[in-house]
């Protein structure tokens, strides 16, 4: 099984000894089997994703060819009637994700700094484990909490926001069809605000662990240098930790955004589906692509299903772009630290 078959040279005629031997190694039989099997596993993984993409594309194209440009501008979703588009659901998806980021980013950023800079190593390790644990909590648990606890507790806050901030900033206002503001609590349930809050809490653990990892990689020498120059802890964080962790902050936020865009079950439980662009985030009624799929797949015809697939394809492309940008940024911010025992 040796790579170089030296014994062969003996049987060859004399002149060929002048030529240099080939040093290329020939893998053994077991090795080539191993290579082929692992190659096949890699190919199978690629195959699954390509199958998802191709299938979605092919089935979705059927619906897209009917809807054409209307797919982006139509707010209604009546595939059987021929009028369907993702304008409202895409708007709702983005609204919920933006609210989730507004809630999640400060929490994740603060907690990540707390874990890497403020608390001691022993407490830190416990809290890091807790953050990782929270990332594994099923989303339906968050959804239950959002529907049965947060919904009724947050309505007074929504009403207060609408009555004070809403007077000056139209996004926070809650108005009826006549344009006058409403304070009835029934108009404040199932809103994009509540869904965004819950999704924001769900994605915080993911964001926190990426950011904390980036922060803890800031070199000790620079930290000590900052302290030696008389910096306070915040001064050190601002001048050393944040510049080193910038990539992690951006990348972690975008990873969280990717998850927030695709979140399904918690959103589907909280919102009441509305097929119109609703700028008033505190007001009842919003929508998202993923909850549209989850709520409509059951009664969809073949064509309705392919319309849902087109919507799913759009969601996939959006999350793919967001995630790729995120992982590129995170990877670039990492130094090529290789472990060596």
């Amino acid at each position: 099984m040796t790579a170089l078959r030296e014994g062969q040279a003996v049987f060859e005629p004399q002149p060929s000894r002048q030529q240099s031997r080939s040093l290329a190694s020939r893998p053994s039989a077991a090795d080539s089997v191993f290579r082929r099997v692992s190659y096949a596993a890699g190919a199978a993984t690629v195959g699954i994703l390509l199958a998802v993409g191709i299938f979605l594309g092919m089935r979705g194209a059927q619906a897209l060819s009917v809807a054409r440009g209307g797919f982006l501008t139509q707010t209604l979703w009546q595939p059987e009637g021929g009028a369907f588009g993702i304008r409202a659901v895409l708007f709702g998806t983005v609204t919920i994700a933006v609210i989730a980021m507004l809630v999640g980013f400060p929490l994740a950023f603060g907690t990540a700094l707390l874990l890497s800079e403020v608390v001691g190593p022993r407490v830190g390790r416990i809290l890091v484990a807790l953050v990782d644990l929270m990332a594994a909590v099923p989303s339906i648990v968050f959804g239950l909490w959002g529907v049965y606890f947060l919904q009724k507790e947050i309505i007074p806050v929504s009403q207060w926001l609408a009555a004070t901030v809403g007077r000056f900033i139209p996004v926070f206002a809650v108005t009826g069809t006549d344009g006058r503001s409403i304070s009835d609590s029934n108009f404040y349930t199932s809103s994009a605000f509540i869904a965004g809050l819950v999704v924001g809490l769900m994605v915080v653990p993911t964001m926190t662990s990426v950011m904390r990892e980036a922060f803890s990689r800031a070199p000790d020498g620079e930290r000590e240098g900052a302290y030696a120059l008389g910096a306070t802890r915040w001064g050190m964080i601002r001048s050393v930790v944040l510049p080193f962790g910038k990539g992690g902050v951006i990348g972690g936020t975008m990873l969280g955004l990717g998850r927030a865009l695709g979140e399904t079950i918690a959103v589907a439980m909280i919102i009441s589906p509305l097929f119109a662009v609703n700028w008033e985030v505190l007001k009842s009624g919003t929508n998202s692509i993923s909850s549209l799929i989850a709520l409509r797949f059951g009664d969809a015809s073949q064509f309705g299903l392919s319309a849902l697939m087109a919507a799913g394809l759009v969601l996939f492309v959006v999350t793919l772009v967001v995630n790729f940008t995120a992982s590129t940024i995170v990877a670039r911010s990492r130094s090529g630290a290789e472990s060596d025992g």
Partner: peptide
Amino acid sequence: VGGRFARFVRTISDAMTALPSVVAGLFILA
């Protein structure tokens, strides 16, 4: 094993983590 194809597989599996769960369900459904 490594190589160009391995890098491609890594990129693809990274992309797969972005797949929204409901889209995976939709794919299996269809």
